[in-house]
Amino acid sequence: MKSAQNFLPDFSHIYIEDGAEKYPLAKDIIKRFPKAEKIYIPDYKTVFNRSGQDFIQQKKSMNLILAVKKPPFLYESTDILQDAGFENFVYTTPLLNCLYNCQYCFLQGMYPSANLVAFANEDDFFKAARNAVLQRKNKNQPLVLSISYNTDLLASENIIPFCRHWIEFASTQSDILIEIRTKSALFNVLKNVKPHKNVLLGWTLSPQEVIEKYEWDTPPLDRRLNAVRQALEKGWKVRLCFDPVMIIPQWQKVYGRFLDELFEAIPVDQIYDAVVGVFRMNKDFFQRARKREPKVDIYYKDYELNKSVLSISEKVHEEVKTFMLEKLEQHFSLDLIDIW
């Protein structure tokens, strides 16, 4: 967790890929960090893929890389991404890496660097999204686009206003639903943005015990709930995500109490839907993550391997499904619950 003395603050250095600076988004970001050292690089991979980087140390002083994304701009759904039953599901990665540091996250082992890469050529992404809407397989359903997949986009909205731009884009389109999944309490950054039916804000909620143990550098539960309430008041579509449900000692008791308190604290009838998942991670990412941060107990549990993805045993997975379904059914109709 962030407590290291003598480390530079985040974004003390901004690396700028050749050609990135001309984009309005890059100009806007650079303006927000007048004191940052600007270092020009031929390609973002020169710095992002350097050998010999220490992910854990970089997390204590993250830097920003501004780059220009080359195609593809959209990706098909993966085995570890929830599509909530939508058929035309794609995701995009305007930002690589995350301000937060959840120990169960695949980002712990995915990239060689902890620095953030922001792709400045937003219009290319929007164009790709427009094309994907036209070419979607099932024309009876919208294109569902997850824009906060390799990151928590709302958490960095203060420095990189991606969410605002994507919401503005989605508001002008038809047949698209963008999902912005977050743990952020920074709802205020969207206070002047008009809610739109094409945008779904998904808050990942966990018991405070789990937040403290695994969701490093994220806002506490009460602040996330505040954000959820504000979003509902403003009229946003809000999804609740219980993903991953972590198998900690007495997890049923901990999650039971957490859900009871949660449904007291928010107007649950206004929630759009709920998704539930369990810990899962690509085997190679898991091994790399364990090597990087070997002091986290997640990396010493017994998991089952299925199609290169490690996850809890089928038996415990079933227990989680049964338990969560029983709890959620008290508040949601079955078609609004997606359990993974």
Binding site: F7, L8, H13, I39, I41, D54, Q58, K60
Partner: peptide, 27 residues
Amino acid sequence: INKITSDKSGKAWLPDILLKTGIPEVQ
């Protein structure tokens, strides 16, 4: 030094500066 370029090969090397030294930076 925050960026080192080899004049011969054109290759750039980037030290990872994480600590507060108070020393001005340059390439």
